[in-house]
Amino acid sequence: MSGQGFALLAALFYGMAGVTIAKGRSTARGDNGVFLSVLVTACMSGGLWRLQGQTDASDLLASDALIPVAAFIAAGMFSMVMGRTTMYRATEQIGPVATSLLRRLTPVFALPIAFLILAEVPTWGTVLGAALVICAILIHIGRPTLVSKGAVDAGWAMGVASAVFYALSYALRSYGLDRIPDAAMGTFIGALAGLLWMQGAAALGPKPRARLHRLYVDQGRWHWLTAITLSGGQLCQFFALKSTSVVVVATLGSLEVLFTAFLGHALLGRTRIGQARIWLPAGLAAIGTALLML
């Protein structure tokens, strides 16, 4: 499968995950399955690495592997911990479609980050695509529907923060893959770093028993489905970054908005997902995506 194909498959997985996060919120007693999702990502990527990975564990001890491994660890912290946590909280506050639209800011933030870290110079088509994404988000934000202004403000802030964290992780992953081209291994290193950080922060903070319980308690069917789809999306993104640019991978995710809208309509109902005001922003995002495919 091509890099673009993996990127589109990742968008489908993330679209499904946004809807299942909203479904899982009603039964959540802890973090709504954030920790579970990172654990599943570690298991899936670790197993895939052992089955068909191109790098042995001993290779990671070489001196020239230090910097790319550090990049994978940093990417894992930005995506598995900070990116996922803010994405979950934004989805709970403003819904899956609005959160999915805000994640389309990722390529906008990825433009300067990729230029600084990877020296990738965007084309005019890429810049125009990013501009259309911004217009789509502004159209959607112009018609907020939630009653609680505090929840809206917090949700938007979390959604924008998630886009920034994912943009950083894309660039760092691509940097690491340029030096160690093993997507499954890179995903596993990042997920493992996220697991250790989340458990360590809980164990060393106040009320460690309650904080650790909060990590492990949510294991319902929607939490498991979210964990599996997020893990699949994470792996697909890594494989996509092996053969195409950071900005293309980030912007192809614009189709996540359409997937979220369709799946949300089926699972959440029209009133919960706000279908009437999603089509114009989603269409603009899709046009931006098409510009990158030319």
Rank of each mutant, 00 (worst) to 15 (best):
W224F: 06
T85H: 09
M198Y: 08
I117W: 10
V81E: 11
V69R: 01
A201L: 12
G269L: 09
G30N: 09
A286K: 06
L116Y: 10
W197V: 14
A131V: 10
I73R: 00
G30H: 06
I94E: 01
L268P: 08
S79V: 00
A136H: 04
G95H: 02
G176P: 07
G205A: 11
F262Q: 07
T226Q: 05
V127F: 12
M1E: 05
T55Y: 05
I180S: 04
M87T: 04
Y88V: 09
F72T: 05
A42K: 02
K207L: 08
V108C: 00
L116E: 03
Q237H: 07
A191H: 04
L39V: 15
Y166V: 14
P281T: 11
A183R: 02
S63Y: 00
P281N: 10
M16G: 11
A154D: 12
V246L: 08
I273F: 04
I287T: 13
I139A: 08
A157T: 13
A290P: 11
T289N: 06
T260I: 09
I228P: 03
V81P: 08
F115M: 11
S169I: 07
I117Q: 07
H140Q: 11
E256C: 03
G15C: 11
V217S: 09
A154C: 11
N32M: 08
R221W: 12
Q52C: 14
G186S: 06
S37V: 07
L255I: 14
A10V: 07
I117S: 02
Q4P: 12
A203F: 11
A57F: 12
T99C: 03
H213F: 03
I189F: 02
A17L: 13
I189C: 05
G24E: 06
G283F: 02
K207H: 13
W49A: 07
F6Y: 15
A282D: 10
M82S: 14
I273K: 02
M293S: 01
F238A: 15
R211N: 09
R209S: 12
A110V: 01
G194D: 09
A154Q: 13
A75R: 04
G233T: 10
G176N: 05
G190S: 12
W224T: 00
S243F: 10
T187K: 03
Q4G: 07
L128D: 00
G159I: 03
L235Q: 04
S37N: 09
Q219G: 01
L177V: 09
S231D: 05
Q237F: 02
E256L: 00
A290E: 03
A10D: 13
A261Q: 10
G274D: 14
T55L: 06
V248P: 05
I94L: 02
Q275M: 13
L61C: 14
P107N: 04
A240K: 03
K207I: 00
R209F: 08
M158I: 01
A250P: 05
A71T: 00
C43H: 00
A261F: 12
P112V: 07
M198C: 12
C135N: 00
T106Q: 06
F165N: 02
G95F: 00
A131R: 04
L230E: 07
